[in-house]
């Protein structure tokens, strides 16, 4: 099922790339312009994806004829239980990345480590304390190291 999804995405992507590649400015190249190599790759990737789609959907058709539809809800529940943390983490990470520009590296990172740690681990007071210490030490040490040794300026955000 998932393979099918990936293959369809790759197929769509290669179609997109193929048709985007047509109209690049050509210099006086005799044979291959800027668009030819991507087109070549797109054709190869697209046809391989198509092969995989066909073989996978055949396999899937055989299987689904046996499985009943009642399992759908149960299947969704077990899927959610299995991937709950993964989904939460993806959302949290996206939020972290978005907020770095707004509230700055220092505050956002400290909060991210604490919240992520509490999400994954036990939600206890003791855990909160260790996580706070770890996050502050980690954030300050990376901040100071990169700022002073490698002269990287981290985003300061609204407050700094």
């Amino acid at each position: 099922m998932g393979e099918l999804f990936v293959a369809v995405m790759l197929l769509l992507m290669s179609i997109l790339i193929f048709f985007q590649s047509g109209d690049f400015t050509h210099l006086n190249e005799s044979q291959l312009g800027p668009g030819s190599y991507p087109q070549l790759i797109a054709i190869l990737l697209g046809s391989l994806s198509l092969i995989l789609i066909i073989s996978q959907s055949r396999k899937l058709l055989k299987e689904t004829s046996r499985a009943s539809k009642d399992n759908l809800k149960a299947g969704f529940q077990s899927f959610y239980a299995e991937y709950k943390l993964v989904l939460q983490m993806i959302v949290l990470l996206a939020l972290y990345i978005f907020l770095i520009d707004v509230t700055g590296f220092l505050i956002t990172t400290i909060l991210f480590v604490v919240i992520a740690g509490l999400l994954i681990g036990p939600k206890e007071k003791k855990n909160l304390i260790t996580l706070s210490i770890v996050s502050v030490v980690l954030t300050l040490s990376t901040y100071l190291f990169f700022q002073n040794v490698l002269h990287v300026r981290f985003p300061g955000g609204l407050f700094f």
Partner: peptide, 8 residues
């Protein structure tokens, strides 16, 4: 739960 956030 400490290692994973730190590596992120």
């Amino acid at each position: 739960h400490i290692l994973v956030p730190v590596i992120f």
